[in-house]
Amino acid sequence: MSSDAMDAYWQLQPLARTLATAIFITSIGGHMGLIPMEWLYFHSSVAIFKMPPQIWRFITTFLLSSPKLGIILDPYFVYQYLSQIEAGNPKFQRKEDVLWYLITVSGIILLLTQYFLGFEPFLLGALIMALCYTGSQDQRGMKANFFFFTVPAQLVPYCMLGMSVIMNPAALPQQICGLLAAHLHDFLVRLWPEFGGGRNWLATPAFVSRLVTTPRLLQREYGTGIRPRTQTSGSSTGASTGSVLPDSWRTRGTGHRLG
Protein backbone atom coordinates (compact mmCIF):
# COMPACT_ATOMS: atom_id res chain seq x y z
CA MET A 1 0.00 0.00 0.00
CA SER A 2 1.43 3.37 -1.04
CA SER A 3 2.19 6.14 1.40
CA ASP A 4 -0.58 8.30 -0.09
CA ALA A 5 -3.13 5.56 0.51
CA MET A 6 -1.90 5.09 4.07
CA ASP A 7 -2.07 8.83 4.70
CA ALA A 8 -5.64 8.90 3.38
CA TYR A 9 -6.52 5.90 5.57
CA TRP A 10 -5.19 7.51 8.74
CA GLN A 11 -7.09 10.70 8.01
CA LEU A 12 -10.42 8.84 8.17
CA GLN A 13 -12.60 9.07 11.27
CA PRO A 14 -10.74 6.90 13.84
CA LEU A 15 -13.57 4.90 15.40
CA ALA A 16 -15.33 4.37 12.07
CA ARG A 17 -12.18 3.22 10.27
CA THR A 18 -11.19 0.93 13.16
CA LEU A 19 -14.55 -0.82 13.27
CA ALA A 20 -14.83 -1.10 9.47
CA THR A 21 -11.29 -2.52 9.26
CA ALA A 22 -12.02 -5.05 12.01
CA ILE A 23 -15.16 -6.19 10.18
CA PHE A 24 -13.31 -6.51 6.88
CA ILE A 25 -10.41 -8.53 8.35
CA THR A 26 -12.66 -10.75 10.47
CA SER A 27 -15.02 -11.41 7.55
CA ILE A 28 -12.20 -12.39 5.20
CA GLY A 29 -10.74 -14.70 7.83
CA GLY A 30 -14.10 -16.24 8.68
CA HIS A 31 -15.43 -16.78 5.14
CA MET A 32 -12.10 -18.07 3.83
CA GLY A 33 -11.74 -20.54 6.69
CA LEU A 34 -8.74 -18.83 8.26
CA ILE A 35 -10.69 -18.17 11.46
CA PRO A 36 -13.06 -20.88 12.76
CA MET A 37 -16.65 -19.60 12.82
CA GLU A 38 -17.29 -21.28 16.16
CA TRP A 39 -14.80 -18.89 17.75
CA LEU A 40 -16.79 -15.84 16.70
CA TYR A 41 -20.51 -16.26 17.25
CA PHE A 42 -22.31 -15.26 20.43
CA HIS A 43 -24.36 -17.55 22.61
CA SER A 44 -25.08 -16.87 26.27
CA SER A 45 -24.15 -20.35 27.46
CA VAL A 46 -20.86 -20.27 25.56
CA ALA A 47 -19.84 -16.73 26.46
CA ILE A 48 -20.89 -16.54 30.10
CA PHE A 49 -21.00 -19.99 31.71
CA LYS A 50 -17.79 -21.38 30.25
CA MET A 51 -14.54 -21.00 32.15
CA PRO A 52 -12.65 -18.92 31.39
CA PRO A 53 -15.46 -16.66 30.09
CA GLN A 54 -15.17 -16.10 26.35
CA ILE A 55 -15.97 -12.41 26.56
CA TRP A 56 -14.54 -11.64 23.12
CA ARG A 57 -17.73 -13.12 21.62
CA PHE A 58 -19.65 -10.02 22.74
CA ILE A 59 -17.54 -8.14 20.16
CA THR A 60 -16.91 -10.68 17.41
CA THR A 61 -20.61 -11.36 16.96
CA PHE A 62 -20.79 -7.87 15.38
CA LEU A 63 -17.71 -8.33 13.17
CA LEU A 64 -18.76 -10.93 10.61
CA SER A 65 -20.33 -9.66 7.41
CA SER A 66 -22.52 -11.53 4.97
CA PRO A 67 -20.53 -13.53 2.38
CA LYS A 68 -19.35 -12.56 -1.09
CA LEU A 69 -20.25 -8.95 -1.88
CA GLY A 70 -21.17 -8.32 1.76
CA ILE A 71 -17.47 -8.46 2.68
CA ILE A 72 -17.10 -5.13 0.87
CA LEU A 73 -20.53 -3.57 1.34
CA ASP A 74 -21.00 -4.18 5.07
CA PRO A 75 -17.74 -2.47 6.16
CA TYR A 76 -18.55 0.35 3.74
CA PHE A 77 -21.98 0.92 5.27
CA VAL A 78 -20.55 0.74 8.78
CA TYR A 79 -17.95 3.38 7.96
CA GLN A 80 -20.45 5.59 6.13
CA TYR A 81 -23.01 5.71 8.94
CA LEU A 82 -20.59 5.68 11.88
CA SER A 83 -18.46 8.46 10.37
CA GLN A 84 -21.61 10.58 10.10
CA ILE A 85 -22.19 10.06 13.80
CA GLU A 86 -18.56 10.62 14.71
CA ALA A 87 -18.00 13.74 12.63
CA GLY A 88 -21.15 15.82 12.70
CA ASN A 89 -23.84 14.50 15.03
CA PRO A 90 -24.64 17.10 17.72
CA LYS A 91 -25.71 14.37 20.15
CA PHE A 92 -22.15 13.02 20.27
CA GLN A 93 -19.79 15.89 21.04
CA ARG A 94 -16.84 13.74 22.10
CA LYS A 95 -15.17 10.55 20.88
CA GLU A 96 -16.00 8.80 24.14
CA ASP A 97 -19.70 9.52 23.54
CA VAL A 98 -19.51 7.66 20.22
CA LEU A 99 -17.64 4.76 21.82
CA TRP A 100 -20.21 4.52 24.62
CA TYR A 101 -22.98 4.65 22.03
CA LEU A 102 -21.49 1.61 20.28
CA ILE A 103 -21.22 -0.26 23.58
CA THR A 104 -24.74 0.49 24.77
CA VAL A 105 -26.50 -0.02 21.42
CA SER A 106 -24.67 -3.31 20.91
CA GLY A 107 -25.77 -4.42 24.38
CA ILE A 108 -29.39 -3.49 23.67
CA ILE A 109 -29.24 -5.40 20.38
CA LEU A 110 -27.95 -8.48 22.19
CA LEU A 111 -30.77 -8.32 24.72
CA LEU A 112 -33.48 -7.81 22.11
CA THR A 113 -32.30 -10.52 19.75
CA GLN A 114 -31.81 -13.03 22.57
CA TYR A 115 -35.29 -12.33 23.94
CA PHE A 116 -37.31 -12.09 20.72
CA LEU A 117 -35.32 -14.13 18.20
CA GLY A 118 -33.50 -16.69 20.29
CA PHE A 119 -30.14 -17.81 18.94
CA GLU A 120 -28.75 -15.27 16.46
CA PRO A 121 -25.05 -16.01 15.98
CA PHE A 122 -24.00 -12.85 14.11
CA LEU A 123 -25.57 -9.42 14.53
CA LEU A 124 -23.80 -7.06 12.15
CA GLY A 125 -27.01 -6.47 10.19
CA ALA A 126 -28.74 -5.17 13.32
CA LEU A 127 -25.79 -2.90 14.13
CA ILE A 128 -25.76 -1.42 10.62
CA MET A 129 -29.47 -0.65 10.92
CA ALA A 130 -28.90 1.03 14.31
CA LEU A 131 -26.05 3.14 12.91
CA CYS A 132 -28.15 4.11 9.90
CA TYR A 133 -31.08 5.20 12.09
CA THR A 134 -28.91 7.22 14.48
CA GLY A 135 -26.93 8.87 11.71
CA SER A 136 -30.00 9.84 9.67
CA GLN A 137 -32.32 11.22 12.35
CA ASP A 138 -30.34 14.45 12.75
CA GLN A 139 -30.35 15.04 8.99
CA ARG A 140 -34.01 15.91 8.65
CA GLY A 141 -34.66 18.19 5.71
CA MET A 142 -31.65 16.80 3.83
CA LYS A 143 -31.58 14.36 0.95
CA ALA A 144 -29.69 11.07 0.81
CA ASN A 145 -28.89 8.62 -1.96
CA PHE A 146 -30.21 5.10 -1.53
CA PHE A 147 -28.82 3.07 -4.42
CA PHE A 148 -30.32 4.78 -7.49
CA PHE A 149 -32.92 6.83 -5.61
CA THR A 150 -32.86 10.12 -3.72
CA VAL A 151 -34.96 10.07 -0.56
CA PRO A 152 -35.30 12.18 2.61
CA ALA A 153 -32.38 11.29 4.87
CA GLN A 154 -34.54 10.19 7.81
CA LEU A 155 -36.29 7.59 5.62
CA VAL A 156 -33.13 5.68 4.68
CA PRO A 157 -33.53 3.06 7.49
CA TYR A 158 -37.05 2.28 6.34
CA CYS A 159 -35.86 2.00 2.74
CA MET A 160 -33.37 -0.59 3.97
CA LEU A 161 -36.21 -2.51 5.62
CA GLY A 162 -38.19 -2.38 2.40
CA MET A 163 -35.21 -3.67 0.43
CA SER A 164 -34.87 -6.57 2.87
CA VAL A 165 -38.53 -7.47 2.40
CA ILE A 166 -37.86 -7.87 -1.32
CA MET A 167 -34.36 -9.34 -1.41
CA ASN A 168 -33.64 -10.97 1.96
CA PRO A 169 -36.68 -11.43 4.24
CA ALA A 170 -34.65 -13.53 6.67
CA ALA A 171 -32.65 -10.45 7.68
CA LEU A 172 -35.75 -8.43 8.51
CA PRO A 173 -36.27 -9.51 12.19
CA GLN A 174 -32.67 -8.72 13.07
CA GLN A 175 -32.83 -5.33 11.37
CA ILE A 176 -36.00 -4.48 13.28
CA CYS A 177 -34.16 -5.25 16.53
CA GLY A 178 -31.38 -2.89 15.46
CA LEU A 179 -33.93 -0.18 14.66
CA LEU A 180 -35.60 -0.63 18.05
CA ALA A 181 -32.23 -0.51 19.84
CA ALA A 182 -31.26 2.77 18.18
CA HIS A 183 -34.69 4.27 18.85
CA LEU A 184 -34.53 3.23 22.53
CA HIS A 185 -31.06 4.76 22.84
CA ASP A 186 -32.29 8.02 21.29
CA PHE A 187 -35.26 8.07 23.66
CA LEU A 188 -33.16 7.52 26.80
CA VAL A 189 -30.37 9.91 25.82
CA ARG A 190 -32.18 12.76 24.05
CA LEU A 191 -35.99 12.60 23.94
CA TRP A 192 -36.68 11.78 27.58
CA PRO A 193 -34.24 14.37 29.06
CA GLU A 194 -35.26 17.15 26.63
CA PHE A 195 -39.01 16.66 26.40
CA GLY A 196 -39.87 14.50 29.40
CA GLY A 197 -37.84 16.31 32.02
CA GLY A 198 -36.02 13.16 33.05
CA ARG A 199 -32.36 12.32 33.35
CA ASN A 200 -30.04 10.82 30.77
CA TRP A 201 -30.03 7.14 31.65
CA LEU A 202 -27.15 6.33 29.30
CA ALA A 203 -24.72 9.15 30.06
CA THR A 204 -21.11 8.40 29.19
CA PRO A 205 -19.37 7.14 32.34
CA ALA A 206 -16.11 8.63 33.55
CA PHE A 207 -14.03 5.51 32.91
CA VAL A 208 -14.81 5.67 29.18
CA SER A 209 -13.66 9.30 29.12
CA ARG A 210 -10.41 8.35 30.87
CA LEU A 211 -9.93 5.48 28.42
CA VAL A 212 -10.25 7.78 25.41
CA THR A 213 -8.45 10.85 26.79
CA THR A 214 -5.37 9.18 28.28
CA PRO A 215 -2.76 11.91 28.91
CA ARG A 216 0.01 9.94 27.19
CA LEU A 217 -1.94 9.71 23.93
CA LEU A 218 -1.33 12.56 21.51
CA GLN A 219 -4.13 13.37 19.08
CA ARG A 220 -2.65 14.16 15.69
CA GLU A 221 -4.01 14.95 12.26
CA TYR A 222 -3.64 11.27 11.52
CA GLY A 223 -2.61 8.36 13.67
CA THR A 224 -1.85 8.36 17.39
CA GLY A 225 1.45 9.18 19.03
CA ILE A 226 2.60 8.20 22.51
CA ARG A 227 4.11 10.86 24.72
CA PRO A 228 7.49 9.70 26.09
CA ARG A 229 7.74 9.46 29.84
CA THR A 230 9.56 12.33 31.53
CA GLN A 231 12.95 11.58 33.04
CA THR A 232 13.01 11.52 36.80
CA SER A 233 16.68 12.35 37.09
CA GLY A 234 17.67 15.81 35.96
CA SER A 235 20.37 16.13 33.33
CA SER A 236 21.87 19.18 35.08
CA THR A 237 23.66 16.93 37.54
CA GLY A 238 25.67 15.37 34.75
CA ALA A 239 24.92 11.84 36.00
CA SER A 240 23.14 10.72 32.83
CA THR A 241 25.98 11.80 30.50
CA GLY A 242 28.87 10.45 32.48
CA SER A 243 30.30 13.86 33.34
CA VAL A 244 30.81 15.23 36.85
CA LEU A 245 30.39 18.82 35.64
CA PRO A 246 27.04 20.59 35.57
CA ASP A 247 25.62 21.64 32.20
CA SER A 248 26.55 25.30 32.64
CA TRP A 249 30.26 24.36 33.10
CA ARG A 250 30.37 21.84 30.27
CA THR A 251 29.40 24.55 27.78
CA ARG A 252 32.58 26.55 28.58
CA GLY A 253 34.91 24.30 26.56
CA THR A 254 37.30 21.48 27.32
CA GLY A 255 39.12 23.37 30.10
CA HIS A 256 42.85 23.57 30.89
CA ARG A 257 44.85 22.68 34.00
CA LEU A 258 46.47 25.64 35.79
CA GLY A 259 50.00 25.54 37.18
Score class of each variant (00 low, 15 high):
168 N>T: 12
60 T>G: 08
71 I>P: 03
224 T>Q: 09
83 S>F: 06
62 F>A: 05
128 I>M: 05
171 A>D: 11
30 G>D: 05
14 P>R: 09
43 H>W: 10
63 L>R: 07
153 A>K: 09
251 T>A: 09
112 L>R: 00
136 S>P: 01
214 T>H: 06
111 L>H: 00
88 G>K: 11
155 L>M: 01
160 M>Q: 10
24 F>L: 15
30 G>H: 08
118 G>R: 03
147 F>C: 04
210 R>N: 12
34 L>W: 15
240 S>A: 14
97 D>E: 14
202 L>A: 11
138 D>Y: 04
245 L>A: 13
83 S>W: 07
62 F>D: 02
125 G>K: 05
127 L>Y: 03
169 P>D: 12
248 S>I: 10
123 L>C: 12
55 I>V: 14
205 P>L: 12
28 I>A: 12
126 A>S: 14
76 Y>R: 01
71 I>Y: 02
47 A>D: 05
187 F>E: 04
122 F>G: 00
164 S>P: 00
159 C>D: 00
129 M>W: 04
177 C>G: 03
236 S>Y: 02
225 G>D: 15
148 F>C: 04
202 L>N: 03
107 G>A: 05
139 Q>I: 03
221 E>Q: 09
97 D>H: 15
20 A>G: 10
149 F>C: 01
205 P>D: 12
41 Y>K: 02
215 P>L: 13
231 Q>N: 01
56 W>K: 02
1 M>R: 04
126 A>N: 05
104 T>F: 06
152 P>C: 05
9 Y>S: 01
108 I>V: 12
100 W>C: 04
111 L>G: 13
56 W>I: 07
38 E>Q: 13
238 G>P: 04
188 L>Y: 09
112 L>S: 10
19 L>V: 15
91 K>E: 13
68 K>L: 11
77 F>I: 05
219 Q>N: 07
127 L>H: 02
161 L>M: 15
180 L>V: 15
218 L>P: 00
84 Q>H: 12
122 F>T: 00
139 Q>A: 13
200 N>K: 14
259 G>C: 13
191 L>P: 00
242 G>Y: 11
212 V>A: 07
69 L>D: 11
88 G>N: 12
158 Y>V: 09
243 S>Y: 03
8 A>N: 09
129 M>P: 08
61 T>S: 14
196 G>P: 07
47 A>G: 07
18 T>E: 06
252 R>A: 08
142 M>S: 14
54 Q>L: 14
248 S>G: 01
133 Y>E: 03
236 S>R: 05
181 A>V: 07
173 P>C: 11
20 A>N: 03
185 H>T: 00
93 Q>K: 11
199 R>S: 14
34 L>V: 06
123 L>H: 12
67 P>W: 10
57 R>L: 11
165 V>E: 06
101 Y>V: 07
163 M>K: 06
175 Q>G: 12
36 P>M: 09
155 L>A: 01
60 T>Q: 09
171 A>W: 08
226 I>W: 11
72 I>W: 11
209 S>M: 07
89 N>P: 02
146 F>G: 01
33 G>S: 08
71 I>V: 15
164 S>V: 02
114 Q>D: 12
159 C>G: 02
210 R>E: 13
171 A>T: 07
176 I>P: 02
139 Q>N: 10
171 A>H: 03
226 I>S: 08
161 L>N: 06
36 P>H: 02
24 F>D: 00
119 F>H: 14
160 M>N: 05
101 Y>F: 15
110 L>Q: 14
228 P>Y: 03
55 I>S: 10
217 L>P: 00
209 S>W: 05
205 P>H: 10
